Simulated assay, not measured.
Amino acid sequence: MGVYIALLRGINVSGQKLIKMTELKRMFEELGFSRVQTYIQSGNVLFESAEPQQGEEPLSKRIERGIEEVFGYQVPVVIRTLDELVHILANCPFPADTLAPGESLYAALLAESPSPEGIERLLACRSDIDDYHLAGDEVYILCRQGLGKSLFSNNFLEKKLKVAATTRNWQTMNKLVQLGQAMELG
């Protein structure tokens, strides 16, 4: 059984697409996943599955269909394995322990690999304040004045890359890895 993390985009934000975590957990269990647990209200779900992530029907599509059937919302879902999240944390080009006061770090996780044209559109963008680094299916974002003021918002990345994305702060990313590692041990 593999440990997976489902990251839902755009739920429980500004009163939109409201989903209670207890109901989301139950939906995952009804889909046949085991040891399901949620973390905070923004749609982070850890679970175990014997199914491969990219099987006949990708796990993300199966979960998206379940959310639409149960809650009536179309919600993009990005899936990563625990090992993939560990890799993301280990390969951040902006060392979290060297951030200046007021700086924050985020990871935007892409639902699929962007096209070469999308990559070109993003790489043409620069900011005098913030920085980013595209690495495969992730975008690391260093915000010097907070994500709310950053050019590199989730919507901006989706527009440039033409790929669904969901963004998490560095503390959430670390907590998801901790919870996933505890699942593996337990």
Rank of each mutant, 00 (worst) to 15 (best):
G2I: 05
V3G: 00
I5V: 15
I5Q: 00
L7S: 02
L8A: 11
R9P: 01
R9L: 10
R9G: 03
G10N: 12
N12T: 06
N12Q: 12
S14E: 10
G15T: 10
G15Y: 08
K17L: 10
T22M: 12
E23L: 15
F28D: 10
F28K: 01
E29F: 10
E30C: 07
V36D: 07
V36F: 10
T38C: 11
Y39F: 12
Y39G: 03
Y39R: 08
I40M: 08
I40F: 08
Q41D: 07
V45F: 04
L46S: 05
P52T: 14
Q53I: 15
Q54A: 13
E57P: 00
E57Q: 13
S60T: 09
S60D: 07
K61A: 14
I63F: 06
I63V: 15
E64I: 05
E64Y: 04
R65A: 13
G66Y: 01
I67F: 10
I67S: 01
I67G: 00
E68M: 15
E69P: 00
E69S: 13
Y73K: 13
V75A: 09
P76V: 07
I79R: 04
R80E: 05
T81V: 09
T81C: 07
D83L: 10
E84D: 12
L85W: 03
A90S: 14
N91R: 09
C92T: 13
F94E: 02
P95T: 12
A96W: 14
A96R: 13
D97T: 15
T98W: 06
T98G: 01
L99E: 13
L99R: 04
A100P: 01
P101T: 10
E103W: 08
S104C: 14
L109C: 11
L110E: 00
A111P: 00
A111E: 13
A111I: 02
S113N: 06
P114E: 05
S115P: 03
E117K: 12
E117S: 07
I119G: 00
E120G: 03
E120I: 04
R121V: 03
L123Q: 11
A124C: 11
S127P: 05
S127V: 15
D130H: 09
D130I: 11
D130S: 13
Y132A: 02
A135N: 08
D137A: 07
V139N: 00
I141Y: 01
L142C: 03
C143F: 08
R144A: 15
S150E: 05
S150M: 03
L151A: 06
F152H: 00
S153E: 05
N155E: 09
N155T: 10
E158W: 01
K160C: 04
K160T: 02
L161I: 11
K162D: 15
K162E: 14
A164T: 07
A165T: 15
A165C: 14
R168G: 11
R168E: 09
T172G: 09
N174M: 06
N174P: 00
K175W: 02
L176F: 14
Q178C: 06
L179F: 10
Q181K: 15
Q181L: 13
A182V: 08
M183W: 01
M183G: 00
G186P: 03
G186V: 06
